[in-house]
Design a protein around this nucleic acid. Structure first.
Length: 592
DNA sequence: TCAGAGTGCGCC
DNA sequence: AAACGGCGCACGCTGA
């Protein structure tokens, strides 16, 4: 099916030309020829995957109509790399696949790449957001150039003297990017995605630097916290044991129920059913409302919460402290979510419990402060902007508390009589209903997340009143429903980010994407705007979380940096939300 | 025995 | 007619 031999613009799979340079004179004469090129494809082969401990073995630079330059970097003394540095920061478009990886290695080798970037992986992800497709170089080459890329050398030993096969592979990997570039560029233009792709490209070095920065972590404080949680968990487990013995007396098979594993939903369900609790599943939403009635259920919920925190964070986070920096450097994937949001892994810092005692273990280095800024109610503001609901827009323009307003509208109370519980109720209503939640889920959601109990009838009534109170939202939902019934192929955010729909999407997904996606667009734009100020103020971006940006800043510059951070975030959001005002909450302290 | 789907839950 | 969305990770369980 796939041709093994193909002539593309620049290369032939068997006749690819390359020049291996291992001394400064041959390096510089090879580089001289590349300064006229408007595009440069760059790739690095490294001794491993960790930029903080591994190093570059080979740099490949490809330009149209030139042999690929393969630079044996360890053979070039640091003092002889000035022309290379110059090339990597010139005005050419730098093309790379997963450029973050190469940027990090090059930066730590003192070869910071700057200027315009074009990341073939990000470009492909922007084009295919929503589809189930791999964005590996191999797959992209297969889909766009119609041949099978041989990656067997990728896992070869790059620490030993390089073989001809390795050099050929390395040259090819860089050269192929020159062929992908015009195709991806054309597709981006045709799909009106070039702008959003450029936002991603500009964001890339900011993300790359953020990973290198990492977060400083107070291990001893964390361990004290962990020990406390461990005690609480044991308490909960003991309660579960005692109560299980009681339950086993009612069972015909005590030897089985004695062995109930609290981590097994199946066994727990059977055990709870055996003592007469009528449930069909043991998830939080089914159990919360029964916790007051049955102590064992409270113990189970406690146990689950604590073992989650201990298993996922308390025990795992210390393993991610980097021996070289003493900091935690997670992996951020700027297009990790189909909506355009970031995802974060190893460790998942975007999921750290919001509990202040946990977060206070992430600390500023001596002489630094942590500045944390988040967008206030960004999704609701986006919703106001998209729906142009008159009451919602007016409330935000007047600086009113939207949750209080909703509380007043759905309960019929005067705005001054709204209680704290009413306001929590309104939060559940606002956050839930904009994405199309039904009455049954609203009832559960309000109980689980906000501790507000209501009957199904009340939930139905609240739902009805919400859409009567905000007819603009109801209309916006109607419009999307209309598109939905006609069969919709894609959704766009205001920044024109696209998400494609493969099968018939759920209606709620259609409600969600324009909101969640624009939130991501805004946060990324804010990061890009911050890029230069961060360098100027020697401040580190250390974490981003959907609507939140965390910086580590020299103590002496806190005021200027807070001010700049505020301005960048406001400007990014204003670009899309105008005339809805944007509010940023900023806090400065010694820890997160 | 081990990959993978399923359940459950931490975050926004 | 009714329907929140987006992640990553740990765990028990299933089936080839």
């Amino acid at each position: 099916m796939f041709t093994s031999l193909i002539n593309t613009n620049n290369i032939n799979i068997f006749t690819i030309q390359y020049t291996l340079v291992s001394n400064v004179s041959s390096l510089n004469s090879a580089l001289q020829l590349l300064f006229q090129a408007e595009v440069l494809a760059i790739d690095c082969e490294t001794t491993g995957l960790d930029p903080l401990t591994d190093s570059i073995r080979l740099i490949q630079i490809a330009a149209p109509n030139h042999p690929v330059v393969l630079i044996d970097l360890p053979a070039i003394p640091k003092s002889d790399r000035s022309l290379l540095k110059q090339l990597l920061s010139n005005s050419a478009v730098k093309i790379a696949h997963n450029a973050k990886f190469d940027w990090q290695f090059l930066t730590l080798a003192g070869l910071q790449t700057s200027g315009k970037f074009f990341d073939t992986q990000l470009a492909y992800k922007v084009l295919t957001a929503g589809l189930k497709t791999s964005s590996s170089l191999q797959n992209i080459v297969k889909k766009l150039l119609h041949f099978q890329l041989d990656k067997t050398q990728q896992i070869s030993d790059w620490c030993k003297p390089l073989t001809k096969a390795q050099l050929h592979y390395a040259a090819f990997d860089a050269a192929i990017l020159l062929d992908l570039y015009p195709i991806l560029l054309k597709k981006l233009k045709q799909a009106k995605l070039l702008k959003i792709a450029r936002l991603e490209f500009q964001c890339m070095p900011v993300v790359a630097q953020m990973e290198l920065n990492g977060m400083l972590f107070d291990l001893s404080r964390w361990q004290i916290l962990g020990a406390k949680l461990e005690i609480e968990k044991t308490d909960a487990l003991n309660q579960l044991k005692q109560l299980r013995i009681a339950s086993s007396q009612m069972s015909l098979l005590p030897e089985l129920t004695d062995a109930v594993n609290p981590n097994s939903p199946q066994q727990v369900l059977a055990a709870l059913q055996a003592i007469g609790i009528k449930i069909n599943s043991t998830n939080q939403s089914k159990l919360v409302s029964l916790a007051a009635q049955y102590p064992i259920i409270q113990a189970l919920l406690d146990y689950r919460r604590l073992s989650k925190i201990i298993g996922t964070f308390t025990e795992k986070l210390p393993q991610h402290i980097h021996p070289k920096t003493g900091r935690i450097h997670p992996n951020y994937y700027q297009l990790g979510a189909k909506s355009g949001r970031f995802s974060c892994r190893k460790p998942p810092l975007q999921n750290i419990p919001r509990d202040q005692t946990a977060r206070s273990c992430f600390i500023a280095a001596p002489g630094y402060k942590i500045i944390k800024a988040d967008y206030s109610q960004i999704e609701l503001r986006i919703m106001a902007r998209l729906s142009a609901d008159i009451k919602m827009c007016q409330a935000y323009r007047q600086g009113a508390d939207l949750h209080r307003l909703t509380a007043s509208l759905v309960t019929g109370k005067h705005i001054n009589e709204v209680t704290e519980e009413d306001r929590r109720l309104a939060k559940a209503i606002n956050f839930g209903l904009i994405f199309g939640m039904g009455a049954a889920k609203l009832q559960i959601y309000a109980q689980v997340k906000y501790g507000v109990a209501m009957t199904l009838e009340q939930a139905k009534a609240f739902r009805k009143r919400f859409f009567e109170a905000y007819p603009g939202i109801a209309k916006w939902h109607e419009n999307i429903k209309h598109e939905y019934t006609r069969g919709i192929k894609e959704s766009r955010t205001l920044a024109n980010r696209r998400r494609r729909w493969v099968n018939k999407p759920r209606l709620s997904e259609l409600f969600n994407h324009p909101v969640q996606g624009l939130n991501a667009d805004i946060n990324k734009l804010a990061m890009v705007k911050l890029s230069n100020p961060l360098a100027k103020f020697k401040t580190k971006l250390i974490c981003v979380r959907h609507d939140e940006i965390v910086l580590e800043c020299p103590e002496t510059k806190v005021e200027q940096v807070s001010h700049t951070l505020h301005n960048c975030m406001v400007a990014a959001a204003q670009k899309f939300l105008n005339p809805i005002p944007v509010v940023i909450d900023i806090k400065t302290s010694n820890s997160w």
